[in-house]
């Protein structure tokens, strides 16, 4: 337990400078963009004279120096104030809090599905390297790995929503349906089936490939030979010895991959019209809403840090070398 606490403290200590770099970086990037929120606002209302623009810029603090504004931004962040979204006329923090759960639901179910299916298939393939089953699974995973998520989403919605009409093609739930309780949950599940399925297929390919490669590494290790010499059944060797140890790199990869997964949600959410985090990012981009985009990028950085911290703890639980008392196999 104390070891876990120490791990958390060390992680947090290194995360703070990293987060600062992220903030400065995104700030610099967006500070030097041509056109700001006032420009976008004036365009949307059909133009305005320079005095109005100057007044607005002053009101939003857009006329101060870069450094002053960075300091302003940092100090308001410290108060958990993410600023005001010009496009939505609401606080950025509210928007993020509102949209984040939808994305977490989408990503969480897709990752869980992909992890379960991907590792299982990876174990089947890696149990007998170079066998016919292995070759088929590896080839399929290569093809799936090469498919762009947004294209797979479109193809799946052509098949299941347009041709077969089994599933809805857009939205998170039926609008104003008045459903409650389990009926509403079922409705949401139906709506999420296509986006979750699409994301899960793409991630599954990755887990499958890494699991298989990782198992191939473990097969060569001495303790596997020893387990064989002990006369353990193949099934027991595969599951208890090879697969368990091969799972560790997968946990590390899940952490490294979490940022990419969050990025991938932008396109999927835009295809299936899910009011989530990724779609919010796209809306922020099209409306030139700097505070909103900064808030989104920053929140996703924090999210990735948290996910990595949790995975570190999982790793510590899984790794037999870190917990000798747990080695029961």
């Amino acid at each position: 337990m104390t070891a876990a606490l120490r791990l958390i403290r060390r992680r947090l200590a290194t995360s703070i400078p990293v987060l600062l770099i992220v903030i400065v970086l995104t700030f610099v990037l967006l500070e030097f963009s041509s056109g700001d929120a006032v420009d976008a606002y004036l365009i949307s209302i059909g133009g305005g004279d320079p005095a109005v623009a100057a007044n607005l810029r002053h009101a939003y603090g857009l006329d101060q120096s870069h450094l002053a504004r960075l300091w302003l931004y940092l100090s308001s962040l410290a108060r958990l104030d993410f600023g005001w979204s010009v496009a939505f006329e609401r606080p950025v923090a509210d928007l993020i809090v509102e949209r984040l759960p939808n994305t977490l639901l989408l990503m969480g179910s897709a990752t869980a599905l992909a992890f379960g299916l991907g590792t299982s298939l990876g174990i089947v393939a890696g149990a007998r390297p170079e066998s016919a089953t292995d070759r088929v699974i590896s080839t399929v995973s290569l093809i799936l790995y090469a498919i762009p998520g947004f294209w797979l989403g479109l193809v799946l919605s052509i098949v299941f929503a347009v041709k077969l009409r089994w599933l809805p093609s857009a939205g998170l739930e039926t609008i104003a349906s008045g459903r409650t309780g389990s009926a509403r949950m079922l409705d949401i599940a139906m709506h999420l089936a296509l986006p979750v399925g699409t994301l899960a297929v793409i991630y599954m390919a990755l887990f499958m490939r890494v699991m298989r490669a990782s198992m191939a590494e473990v097969w060569r290790l001495d303790f596997v030979t020893f387990a064989r010499a002990k006369g353990l059944s193949r099934r027991r060797i595969v599951l208890r010895h090879v697969a368990r140890n091969a799972l560790l790199p997968l946990v590390t990869m899940l952490g490294l991959q979490s940022a990419a997964m969050l990025g991938g949600s932008v396109v999927i959410e835009s295809i299936f019209a899910i009011p989530g985090f990724g779609r919010l990012a796209q809306e922020a981009v099209t409306q030139r809403d700097t505070p909103l985009l900064l808030g989104i990028i920053l929140t996703s950085a924090v999210l990735v840090i948290v996910v990595n911290l949790l995975l570190d703890l999982v790793y510590a639980l899984l790794d037999p070398r870190l917990q000798p008392s747990d080695r029961s196999a």
Binding site: T14, V18, T26, L256, A259, A260, L262, G263, S300
Partner: peptide
């Protein structure tokens, strides 16, 4: 290496979205 960490934590696609929308 902290800068590398920062870039690894940032979703690359969001960063690309931001940069392309900023620079055209």
């Amino acid at each position: 290496m902290r800068v590398v960490d920062a870039f690894q934590i940032l979703p690359g696609f969001l960063l690309a979205l931001a940069l392309v929308s900023v620079a055209g």
